[in-house]
């Protein structure tokens, strides 16, 4: 949460000195076909922490995740996963061929055997318990992502790894999904590592942001990142407003619970930001 407001200190070293990282990379590089897809990455994900990797398409976000998961061998550097780490993974753009008949229940228990009750509970957490016997091909984009998220939860994960978790979800659904992910973190205390190109909503539910374009351009708390020159260079000046939107909503909620009307100063400030936001709609 952005409690360090007013201390714009630019990039913060994302590597922490605390020892109990769920997964940690040092000097990580992946080279394919003579090109470095990612290079010189240092990253730790701690228990209970939401780390979001943002960056342009082709910036190596998925490559980084796959290397951290051990799905591809790094060309340089090391990846350390905590011993016995249970991972719940939602890969990018999973498509299930229509020729393969699967129900939601079956998809959930593909690699683990769990009682039906447990499957229902997991689906209930993402708000779709009633879909348990539906055919996978009949699900909407949002429903499918919720199934995948519930599926990851069923693993009782220490670490959730989500690659573009809101893909194929409409805009209203996106915010819901990110809220759900934050809730899950709070409820289970698991670490979350996610990839997104969607700055907007993601900033709201993230503890740390890592901005990736082959290398780590900048890393730190969302609040600081949104002002970082590298970030602005990559995403354009309008991107700074993405965070402002969140801050605005945040202030607003906060103000409602405290008595906002009595403080004209606050009201003014709030009003100013409000005005600012109205010219904002860069949703992509």
């Amino acid at each position: 949460m952005p409690d360090s407001r007013g201390l714009p200190q630019g990039a913060v070293d994302i590597r922490s000195k605390r020892p109990a990282a769920l997964v940690s990379a040092t000097g990580l590089g992946v080279r394919r076909g003579g090109h470095w897809l990612v290079r010189n990455i240092a990253l730790d994900v701690m228990p209970g922490e939401v780390v979001t990797v943002i960056g342009p398409n082709g910036g190596g976000k998925t490559t980084l995740l796959r290397a951290l998961l051990g799905l591809i061998r790094p060309t340089a550097g090391t990846v350390r996963r905590q011993a016995g780490l249970r991972v719940g993974y939602v890969p990018q753009r999973l498509t299930i061929d229509r020729v393969l008949p699967l129900t939601v229940h079956r998809l959930m228990t593909l690699t683990v055997r769990r009682p039906r009750q447990a499957v229902e509970t997991a689906l209930g957490e993402t708000g779709i318990a009633d879909l348990i016997d539906h055919r996978v091909e009949t699900l909407s984009g949002g429903e499918f992502q919720r199934v995948m998220l519930a599926r990851a939860l069923l693993m009782e994960p220490d670490l959730l790894v989500l690659d573009e978790p809101v893909q194929g979800v409409d805009f209203a659904g996106e915010a819901d999904l990110y809220r759900l992910i934050a809730e899950i973190r709070n409820r289970h205390g698991c670490g979350v590592l996610m990839v997104s190109h969607d700055l907007h909503v993601v900033m709201a539910s993230t503890d740390r942001v890592l901005c990736l374009n082959q290398h780590v351009c900048c890393a730190g708390q969302p609040h600081d990142i949104s002002r970082h020159p590298e970030y602005l260079r990559l995403f354009g000046p309008r991107a700074a407003q993405a965070y402002a939107v969140y801050e605005h909503h945040h202030d607003h909620a906060h103000a409602l619970s405290g008595e906002v009307v009595r403080f004209p100063g606050c009201d003014h400030d709030h009003h100013g930001q409000h005005h600012h936001n109205h010219g904002e709609p860069d949703r992509r």
Binding site: R66, L69, G70, L71, V87, Y89, P91, L94, I96, L100, L102, L107, L110, T111, V112, M155, V161
Partner: peptide
């Protein structure tokens, strides 16, 4: 059967989950 089905649905997913 079960591991093969998991790999068939998505190889990355299956491998990440220890198949």
């Amino acid at each position: 059967w079960r591991p093969l089905l998991a790999v068939t649905v998505d190889e990355d997913l299956a491998r990440a989950e220890g198949v």
